[in-house]
């Protein structure tokens, strides 16, 4: 029994190979290889480019382009472009400045909601997968039940009561969208928990908490990270739907969905500058996250195939 050599606790998914020869090689190249594969994907890089542009536009833009986004200016409403680069909206706010402000909210909530969902989902999936048996069955039935609830309707019901600021909306969107990551992580854990390095950790007396946080979750990270980009895209779309139905963040804040709602009211007046900039921005950002997600998935997949 003294000859048992504790295998290194691999902190990255590349090192899960059971072949000792592979481990040394893959520990060095796991994430690097994924990144290199990702960098070869032109569409994914386009997504990164779009995203970087919008992050700078929304968060740095207001420092360069100063506008008053707090006090309405009712003598100067619905002015076409020319009166400010993108005109003004029906409260007299500068549309370009409004776009930056709304983008901040949409990006923040998208990211926060996705992180909340991923944390809950990952823990839930890892615990269910590791414990197995009745606990697993019960936990997964909970996922089935919540997955059957229509996401938009449930979120609307809760958001219209408790929503209206960034934290609450992120929490609401996150708390109802952890089900897919939970299923994904459970699937990963089910294959991981019978692997030798997990058995070894268990035999050496590693607690369940240690198994989950040191061995199972780190090795499921590839799947989790691919999923989180799609979660962000979905959360941004869901927030836009809430805003469109007038259940987004409240004045003086704004989000892209609320701006589209304003544009919808003025569509028949021919105020195209209210709908096109925000519509294009929303679609581009969601597309960027989807492109990045696709790119990451391909990168992770290629690595899996090579193994």
């Amino acid at each position: 029994m003294t000859t048992i050599v504790p295998p290194p606790a691999p902190a990255d998914p590349g090192a899960t190979s059971t072949d000792a020869g592979d481990i040394a090689v893959e520990i060095q190249t796991g994430w690097k290889l994924t990144l290199r594969e990702f960098a070869r994907n032109k569409l994914a890089l386009l997504g990164v480019g779009i995203l970087v542009f919008f992050v700078l536009f929304c968060f740095v833009g207001p420092f360069v382009y100063h506008t008053n986004q707090v006090a309405t200016n009712l003598l100067n409403t619905d002015q076409p472009p020319g009166n400010g680069p993108l005109g003004t909206d029906s409260n007299g706010f500068d549309v370009l400045g409004r776009l930056m402000l709304g983008g901040q909210t949409s990006l923040e909530i998208g990211l926060l909601a996705a992180v909340i969902a991923t944390v809950i989902g990952t823990l839930w999936g890892a615990v269910a997968g590791l414990l197995g048996g009745l606990v697993d069955a019960a936990m997964m039935r909970v996922v089935d039940i919540l997955l059957s609830l229509p996401f938009l309707l449930v979120v609307l019901i809760v958001a219209h009561r408790y929503g209206s600021n960034v934290w609450n909306l992120s929490l609401i969107l996150g708390v109802f969208s952890w089900l897919v990551p939970a299923r994904l992580v459970r699937g990963e854990v089910l294959t991981l928990r019978v692997r030798d390095f997990v058995s070894a950790a268990r035999v050496m007396g590693g607690s369940r908490t240690r198994l989950i946080f040191r061995h199972l979750i780190p090795n499921a990270m590839g799947t989790v990270i691919v999923n989180i980009t799609f979660q962000i895209a979905d959360a941004i779309l869901a927030l836009a739907a809430l805003g469109f139905l007038n259940f987004g963040v409240h004045y003086p804040h704004t989000d892209w969905g609320s701006q589209i709602a304003d544009a919808a009211d003025n569509l028949s007046n021919g105020y195209w500058w209210l709908v096109f900039p925000v519509g294009i921005a929303l679609v581009l950002v969601v597309m960027a996250f989807n492109l990045i997600g696709d790119g990451l998935r391909d990168a992770v997949d290629v690595r899996l195939r090579k193994r």
């Binding site: 779309l237 836009a240 589209i260 544009a263 919808a264 709908v275 929303l282 679609v283 989807n290």
Partner: peptide, 11 residues
């Protein structure tokens, strides 16, 4: 796929 359904409607 990246466009919310209500934006398609407005378009």
């Amino acid at each position: 796929y990246s466009m919310p359904v209500f934006l398609v409607a407005l378009l």
